[in-house]
Design a protein around this nucleic acid. Structure first.
Lengths: 200, 200
DNA sequence: TTTTGTGTTGGAATCGGATTCCAACATTAG
DNA sequence: CTAATGTTGGAATCCGATTCCAACACAAAA
């Protein structure tokens, strides 16, 4: 897939709104042509079909998230601090692209079935978090994880679903507020901080 | 939608495997007819179309989860203990129906766009957890939540994604193991239990 | 500036699959 | 034994995705 001419790239994003709303199936190519202002023929000149249009949009979103998250991971501070930034980064991009996020989740099946996207998904989310969990065990800012993969997945789930809900309901709640709620749950947990309570 | 004759109901489940694998679009009605052994005409006699078949399967899954979760919520013990049982219940049903779970997530968009399912989704997950969070604040077994809705959503995300990953990779990891990992993260959090560490 | 390659575009032609229709037949409740 | 309901095969339709094609715009190269 050659790089899409910028002129078109800028227009194509309008499609994510449509796809997020109705899902890819119920979105006709002609509908996409209409909202984006790109004629059907031109769309087919650049994309193999509907699925590839969605893939383009999602890949773009995931790349953006991966980039922001990457910065957070590489930043200074304890693993815990960096993980906090990662959460903020992810939520930030999600809130800036609510339509793409909804489209992504709505057609998650298709997304994960495209090998290219499955990789991007993993790189954008799990891997960085997994790394931070290991770092945290080293620098003492996080509890050692018994299964970093498993924990990373759960963290991903919590953050993503939290961000998604905001994207769906379209709340104007600021990213910081959501990030704080997520961080509180993930770092401090739900249990009161009494002495024994641990798993005997 | 009249109650599906049991004879068909038992057969139709075979479709979830197919849908989970390919997604609804790439699954032809004829494919469904083939794997289930139910002729196309008969399928159309009972369902409006493909989407309604998926809806039936998902509704069924969600009902099963809601039922199990319901038992856990109503059980004896502190809110924390009951929440633990809720997590186990959800994971248990998910692991017993991996195909349906994958289908659900793969076509989550469609699922949430069907009002009936959106309600079932909410009843099966958020609501019970939200209630437990409130109970936990009362009986002291859980920290008071600043936003039960938000916390419930995150918990849902962590549990679901954890269960989903197992369903996707088809691991044979026992439910208890997964549930313990989830519970550890959610109750104890990631942060070490030093004195100050809280959010200053 | 003529040539050539690449991007644009409208519209016709195809194709595949979903859904609808219909008629014959089976089963079951009354 | 009927009537109502469930089953089923196969034809007929419909719709939208994708493919094809030809005309045209534009820019770099000769």
């Amino acid at each position: 897939m050659k790089p899409l001419p910028v002129q078109l790239a800028s227009k194509i994003y309008a499609a994510s709104e449509l796809i997020a709303e109705r899902g890819l199936d119920d979105t006709k190519i002609e509908d996409i042509a209409e909202v984006t202002g790109i004629p059907v023929s031109t769309l087919y000149y650049h994309f193999r079909g509907k699925a590839e249009i969605l893939a383009f949009l999602l890949n773009d979103l995931l790349t953006a998230i991966a980039a922001e998250v990457g910065v957070a991971v590489e930043s200074q501070g304890t693993a815990r601090e960096r993980l906090t930034r990662v959460i903020r980064a992810q939520l930030s991009v999600m809130l800036q692209n609510p339509a793409s996020c909804r489209a992504l989740v709505g057609d998650l099946g298709r997304a994960t079935r495209l090998p290219q996207l499955a990789g991007a998904l993993s790189a954008a989310f799990y891997q960085p978090v997994e790394q931070l969990l290991r770092d945290g065990a080293d620098d003492g800012s996080l509890l050692p994880s018994e299964d970093t993969m498993s924990d990373a997945v759960m963290i991903f789930g919590a953050v993503t679903v939290a961000g998604l809900m905001e994207a769906v309901v379209g709340s104007q709640r600021p990213m910081e507020s959501i990030a704080d709620a997520v961080a509180r749950l993930l770092f401090d947990g739900l249990a009161p901080r009494t002495f024994d309570e641990t798993h005997a």
